[in-house]
Each structure stands twice: as structure tokens, then as C-alpha cells.
Amino acid sequence: MRAVAVYRHGGPEVLTPTEWATPVAGPGDVLIDVAAIGVNYHESYERSGLYPRELPYVPGHELAGTVAAVGADVTGLAVGDLVASADVPVPGAYAEQVALPADRVIRVPEGVSAELAAAVLLQGLTVHMLTQDSYPVRPDETALVHAAAGGVGLLLTQVLRSLGVRVIGTVSTAAKEEAARQAGAHEVIRYTEVDFAAEVKSLTDGGGVDVVYDAVGRTTFEGSIASLRPRGTFVLYGQSSGKIPPIDLSTGTRGSIKLTRPYLPDFIATPDELQARGAAVFSWIRRDNLNVHIGRLYPLADAGTAQTDLQQRRTIGKLLLTP
């Protein structure tokens, strides 16, 4: 079957269209005809070697598609069901077909397309973790959301707004500012033009925010810490700009802040938790009219271009591959 593989660590150019062995559904598995594949920063970390993986491998963790076959002992799923997964094992999702454990897929509800399911599941699960576990937000609090026009950022902004939280977003361009405002951000800072930490202090009358959600890492880290109120919480859930530098946590220097580094697999470790969080994500779409912005669709063979566009921040919203 057609797939994209990584044979050596490096930049997006190492993503190689190739032929890969066609998978078979073993006991407890389902075989999926892949319809849409989510493109995520995590794949660039693995591809570069920051998160080491044994070579060669097929990347990708998020997909949606139709069940083509079910293995022995599988119940509750049938051929033809539309399903999605944000937890695709090795080999990964950048392929025409994928076999994976049936208890790691979520049935997609009626009215939700494969493209929409692939665009929302991983980032929706992330937003659920961020707002319910990493820092359970409360009405009338203030949150700083970095990369507010990205896939997670747009979803996070909408969910925070629906929970009564004041959202301050950071973006790099005028187009991204407009997207963040449409998602519900109360204030938007173009971090390329001003010191975002100083702007946050001004917008909060010097008090700082209750929580910072930061997936950027190295270039925003110090400013994020400076933006917190005393006893505020810093949630670092990504590092698209690189690893964060060491931080001095000497008593009294940082205002009694809390730091947490959540890792999504720890929050969907059991089938029951995965299903519960997945149901919550799809309910946001069906009940709360959550808007999922699909920025662009790329042919599977153009995976390198998609990852380049993501890393260069040329896009707004979620990027998908289609086999």
C-alpha cells in the first residue's frame, strides 16, 4: 500500500512516499481504510529525532476512516463504521490503511465527516485535558493562549470562552488575529510587534493572568512566566520553537507559580477515559457548535510540504492529509 515513511531523522524533506506492507486486522484489532490524517507538531518532534523512534517508521497518530475488517473478539464495531483515533501505534497514520486495537478507536457520530473527525479529535482531546485537568478553569478567570490561531489554539479559545473565561491570545499576523477574534478571543496580541508580557500586564492592570497555555516553548517561556499572577499556573503542552531553557525557581522570585507539563497519552490511558473524553469532544461540535477550522488538505505524498507549512506557521487551523 501507499504510505509515507521516515528512514532517517531530519527536516520535512525526509518524509518519503513509499510502498509499505499492507496491514491485517489481528485479534482485537480493526482494519481502517484511511480517509483523512491529522498533521500535528508531535510528528515533527519525532521526525527530527527530538522524540526518538526506531527507524524506519510510518509517522502519524491521528486519523479517521471506515472500518474495512474486524479481527476476532471485536465487539461493538462493524465493517462500514466511521471511526477515528488519536492514538495510532506503529506503523502510523500516514498510510492508506491502518490496523489498530479496537479499544483505541472512537465511533464518529452521525453528522460528523471523516475530515472533521480527523481535524478535531487529537486537538480536542488536548483541549479537554488542558481545561479539565491541567488547569480546571473557572468563570471570570483570565487565560493567555499562545498560538491562538493554530489548530489547538482556535479550539481552546472557543472552549474557554464558552466556560466564561476571558481569553488573551497571541498571534503573528493580521490574518491570524482575525481568526483568533472570530474564535472568541477578547484581546489579541501580535507578539511579532510588541512585548506580549508587557501587553498582558497592561491588559490585566498589572495583575497577570490566572493561567498560560503555551505550546511554543523556548521563545515564549520567559514571557509566559512573567505574565502570570501570583499563584498562577503555567501549562506547557508543546515546544514548537524548541526546548525551554532552565528556570530559576528560587523562593520568592516567581510569585508562587505552578508549572505543569501534561502529556496527552497519560490522560487517555484507559479505554474508558479515551471514550469519555472523545464523547465530550464530539458533543462540543454537535451540541455547542464548536467551529473546527480546516486550514488545508494535502495529498498524502505532500506530507513534507504540510509539515513545512505547519512549522513555518504559514497556516491557520488544522492541516490534513488525504490518501
Results as ranks from 00 to 15, higher is better:
residue 226 A to F: 00
residue 201 K to V: 02
residue 202 S to V: 01
residue 209 V to Y: 05
residue 244 I to N: 09
residue 215 A to P: 03
residue 201 K to D: 13
residue 189 I to N: 04
residue 247 I to Y: 15
residue 184 G to I: 12
residue 199 E to R: 14
residue 250 S to F: 09
residue 226 A to L: 06
residue 192 T to R: 15
residue 187 E to C: 00
residue 197 A to T: 07
residue 213 Y to M: 05
residue 184 G to N: 11
residue 248 D to K: 12
residue 225 I to K: 07
residue 206 G to C: 04
residue 208 G to E: 09
residue 224 S to G: 15
residue 242 G to K: 09
residue 240 S to N: 10
residue 220 T to A: 10
residue 208 G to Y: 11
residue 199 E to W: 01
residue 238 G to H: 13
residue 215 A to I: 03
residue 241 S to D: 02
residue 245 P to R: 14
residue 238 G to Q: 12
residue 188 V to G: 00
residue 225 I to N: 04
residue 226 A to I: 04
residue 230 P to T: 09
residue 188 V to E: 09
residue 248 D to Q: 06
residue 242 G to V: 03
residue 241 S to R: 10
residue 200 V to H: 02
residue 225 I to H: 06
residue 207 G to A: 09
residue 250 S to H: 13
residue 200 V to N: 07
residue 226 A to Y: 06
residue 200 V to M: 00
residue 194 V to W: 01
residue 249 L to V: 11
residue 191 Y to D: 08
residue 204 T to I: 06
residue 199 E to S: 09
residue 211 V to Q: 05
residue 187 E to W: 10
residue 189 I to L: 08
residue 193 E to P: 00
residue 204 T to Q: 05
residue 241 S to L: 12
residue 215 A to L: 01
residue 206 G to L: 00
residue 217 G to I: 10
residue 189 I to K: 06
residue 236 L to Y: 05
residue 199 E to L: 01
residue 247 I to V: 15
residue 224 S to C: 02
residue 190 R to W: 02
residue 228 L to H: 07
residue 224 S to L: 01
residue 215 A to M: 11
residue 206 G to W: 03
residue 200 V to Q: 03
residue 239 Q to N: 13
residue 201 K to I: 01
residue 241 S to V: 12
residue 245 P to A: 02
residue 219 T to G: 01
residue 196 F to V: 01
residue 240 S to W: 05
residue 222 E to Y: 04
residue 217 G to C: 08
residue 186 H to W: 07
residue 218 R to Y: 07
residue 205 D to L: 00
residue 206 G to Y: 08
residue 234 F to P: 06
residue 217 G to K: 14
residue 197 A to L: 01
residue 250 S to G: 15
residue 225 I to S: 07
residue 197 A to H: 07
residue 203 L to E: 04
residue 233 T to G: 06
residue 190 R to M: 08
residue 232 G to T: 08
residue 250 S to M: 13
residue 236 L to T: 09
residue 213 Y to G: 04
residue 245 P to V: 12
residue 197 A to F: 02
residue 220 T to K: 08
residue 227 S to Y: 02
